[in-house]
Design a protein around this nucleic acid. Sequence first.
DNA 1: GTATAAACTTAGATGTATCTAACAAATAAG
DNA 2: CTTATTTGTTAGATACATCTAAGTTTATAC
Lengths: 227, 227
Amino acid sequence: MYFCFVNSNTEENYLKAIFLLTDGVSEVQPKELSESLGVKMPTINSMMKRLLEKGLVEHTSYRPISLTKSGKKMAALIIRKHRLTEMFLVEKMEFGWEEVHEIAEQVEHIKSPIFFEKMNEMLGSPKQDPHGSSIPDLNGNIDNVNYPKLSDCEKNAELRLVAVNNSSEDFLKFLNARKISLGLRMKVLSVESFDGNMTILFNEKREEVLSKIVCDRLLVTQLNPSK
Amino acid sequence: MYFCFVNSNTEENYLKAIFLLTDGVSEVQPKELSESLGVKMPTINSMMKRLLEKGLVEHTSYRPISLTKSGKKMAALIIRKHRLTEMFLVEKMEFGWEEVHEIAEQVEHIKSPIFFEKMNEMLGSPKQDPHGSSIPDLNGNIDNVNYPKLSDCEKNAELRLVAVNNSSEDFLKFLNARKISLGLRMKVLSVESFDGNMTILFNEKREEVLSKIVCDRLLVTQLNPSK
DNA sequence: GTATAAACTTAGATGTATCTAACAAATAAG
DNA sequence: CTTATTTGTTAGATACATCTAAGTTTATAC
């Protein structure tokens, strides 16, 4: 039996949003999805009805939403296209990492496997996008490395910034202004227990205080202590 | 008074189709437009109503359709994005000229002036796309060079292929198979008056018979006779 | 110059994607 | 454990983009 079923851009956006909101957890509340997509609750409801019929989500009345296996794969492939595009824009077209999300948000819906595989080839099959997020492979499998947040690290921790949690233009411009980019070495000099502000030493020379809000969005790895 | 009015992809496709069908002439018949877009007549009708209200087309009942000045500009800017994309795909991503139309058809709707201007810059502000069609400038102005068709040339004419009339994959693959590409020198050896077939000498060495259908789609310039 | 054919228009229907208003269920608060 | 609040659902409305069926106008043919 042969199925040729194409999803609208809108449907793709719902799948993507559910995928991203269920990162780590298994389900998402309709309310959360509605806020994430900027649509009202009944809209979520009618779209879930459609995606349910297509076998892409699981959802029973008054219960949270999750993706089926095929929904997950479909979402991962859209995210693959999004992240390859972001990488292409940064590496091959000299865009800043703060400029690429909006463009990739549109490019990701282009129907042309060869277009994205050409990007992939030109980029040498990158494993991460410019914000440090993993790029799913052609089968929709994605490395689920769960980097800790800077805000969860303790005093004296020696770290490297490997990803950001959020690709909003404002946040990335904030980081640019402070010359904070992926790969940067950081040491936690102090943590203010009252508000979660952290004082960080960058590259062993520059010292700066970062708010909890910012520290929540910076993902790090422990630096090899043998070094 | 401030207007922020965005057109849907569908509207953009109508504007583009009208622009291309009114190349050289001033109007297009609704029927022609309907066939070109693959929609039924009433669909044309209701879209014309909308584009009329937006001041993008001129149309009165039972009369042909034309673009207003602002409709023309808008269409030209979409075509600019399409043709820049085609050029980018060929020059920077190593696609064949027969592969790019379908992809550009989708990319042209992306809303990001900087994305296309970056392409333009990387390409060195090209004046033609890979099929020899002029690329409109940022103001929507387009060089209207009207190259003659090969089929309108006479015996013994010495020519250079400068553009094709049609970017369909099948036609371009047909040309690829015969190693016919832009810039190729051609001499008309004979014209069959019965069916319009032409015998052409390519690059002063290779001889081939081309059907009228093909000759209608090949656009040429007269080679400088002083050469 | 009427008859016929082709092109065009109107009216009304369908499916997508959204909304508001009103109602129902689940959760939180007292 | 009842009440209030939040969350979720249903029903019905709107706008877009399309269709079919039926009627109208223009063009073509004889």
